[in-house]
Simulated scan of single mutants.
Amino acid sequence: MSEEQTNPAAERIKERKRNAVQPEEFLKGADAIRPTGNEQKLSFTDSFADRLTEHLEQVQADGIGVTDLAKLFGVPESEVTEREFEYTAWQIRNVVYNWPSEGALLFDIATDQTLRAISGEWDDVPPRQRFMIAQSLRSFQDECLFCGGIPDFNNKPVTSCCSERRVLTFRCPDCERRFLEFSTESRENSHIGSNV
C-alpha cells in the first residue's frame, strides 16, 4: 500500500486513540457523575439524573430507530440494521451488538441524547467508547429509571438473554429488566454449563 493509500481501519484506530477520554474525568467534567458522601462510589448528579429521566421518557414514547443507533455509534444510517433475534440486537457495520433487555437499549439511547445535550465534547468521544460509557452508566441507577425499584447485582448465575452461557446480572427485581450481564465463565471453560 502506497503512502497515498490509507487503510480505513488503521485510520479509525488512530482517530479513536486521538479522541479517547478518561471516562470518569469526562463524566465529572460534564456534571453527569459525582462521588457519594463516602467517596467510595460514584453516582449521577441530580441534574443529570433529571435530564436522563426526561430523555428516557421521550425515547420510550418515540421508540428507537436507525437514526438513534447511527448517532450513538457514529455511522451512516445505511450501516445500521435491526436484527431479528430472541433478544435485542442491532448490526452496526459488520458487528452485531446485543443488549440484555430492551430497557438497556432505551437507557443507552437516552444516555447518548442526554450527554449530547449537556456536553459539546460528546460527539468527539470515539463511538465505541461512547457505547461503553453508556453501557457502564446503566449500573449507576440507585433507583430503576423505569419503575422506581432498586436495581441490584444478582449473584446467582442465570442463563444469558443473548447466548447459552451462565451470567451474573445487574437488574431490577421489580420490573425484571436486565441492564448488564457479566460472564461467569472463562474463555477456556465457556462450554461448561451452557446447556441449561
Results as ranks from 00 to 15, higher is better:
residue 89 A to C: 06
residue 195 N to A: 15
residue 82 E to P: 11
residue 147 C to Y: 07
residue 50 D to A: 14
residue 146 F to R: 01
residue 86 E to L: 05
residue 46 D to N: 10
residue 34 R to T: 15
residue 22 Q to S: 13
residue 83 R to Y: 03
residue 30 A to G: 03
residue 116 R to H: 05
residue 131 F to S: 12
residue 64 I to R: 01
residue 80 V to C: 13
residue 60 Q to H: 02
residue 100 P to G: 13
residue 160 S to H: 10
residue 164 E to S: 12
residue 157 P to E: 04
residue 171 R to W: 03
residue 181 E to L: 03
residue 66 V to N: 04
residue 98 N to V: 12
residue 86 E to Y: 03
residue 135 Q to I: 01
residue 72 L to S: 13
residue 84 E to L: 13
residue 74 G to D: 03
residue 133 I to T: 05
residue 137 L to A: 05
residue 51 R to P: 01
residue 158 V to A: 09
residue 145 L to E: 00
residue 108 D to H: 04
residue 176 E to C: 07
residue 28 K to S: 07
residue 84 E to R: 14
residue 32 A to Q: 01
residue 57 E to N: 14
residue 181 E to N: 06
residue 89 A to H: 05
residue 93 R to V: 14
residue 169 T to Y: 03
residue 31 D to L: 09
residue 15 E to F: 11
residue 117 A to P: 01
residue 22 Q to M: 13
residue 124 D to M: 09
residue 47 S to Q: 10
residue 66 V to L: 03
residue 141 Q to R: 01
residue 56 L to A: 04
residue 166 R to N: 10
residue 123 D to Q: 15
residue 70 A to M: 07
residue 68 D to V: 15
residue 90 W to A: 09
residue 126 P to L: 05
residue 61 A to C: 02
residue 192 I to G: 04
residue 51 R to F: 03
residue 190 S to T: 03
residue 161 C to A: 14
residue 150 I to T: 15
residue 105 L to I: 05
residue 107 F to S: 09
residue 143 E to P: 00
residue 117 A to L: 06
residue 194 S to W: 07
residue 41 K to N: 12
residue 86 E to T: 10
residue 180 L to N: 04
residue 43 S to D: 11
residue 179 F to G: 02
residue 3 E to C: 07
residue 187 R to H: 07
residue 127 P to M: 04
residue 112 D to C: 09
residue 4 E to K: 14
residue 16 R to Q: 11
residue 89 A to L: 05
residue 180 L to K: 01
residue 92 I to P: 02
residue 103 G to W: 00
residue 15 E to I: 07
residue 53 T to N: 12
residue 118 I to M: 12
residue 139 S to P: 00
residue 77 E to V: 14
residue 74 G to T: 10
residue 139 S to K: 02
residue 182 F to V: 10
residue 23 P to I: 02
residue 59 V to F: 02
residue 139 S to L: 00
residue 25 E to G: 09
residue 188 E to W: 04
residue 165 R to D: 09
residue 85 F to D: 09
residue 87 Y to D: 12
residue 181 E to F: 01
residue 104 A to C: 06
residue 92 I to L: 02
residue 144 C to V: 06
residue 183 S to R: 05
residue 23 P to Q: 02
residue 162 C to P: 02
residue 119 S to T: 06
residue 3 E to L: 14
residue 67 T to L: 08
residue 36 T to Y: 00
residue 49 A to Q: 14
residue 124 D to V: 07
residue 52 L to W: 07
residue 21 V to N: 02
residue 100 P to D: 09
residue 162 C to R: 08
residue 81 T to E: 11
residue 125 V to L: 04
residue 33 I to K: 08
residue 96 V to W: 00
residue 39 E to S: 15
residue 178 R to C: 09
residue 153 F to N: 10
residue 8 P to V: 04
residue 152 D to E: 14
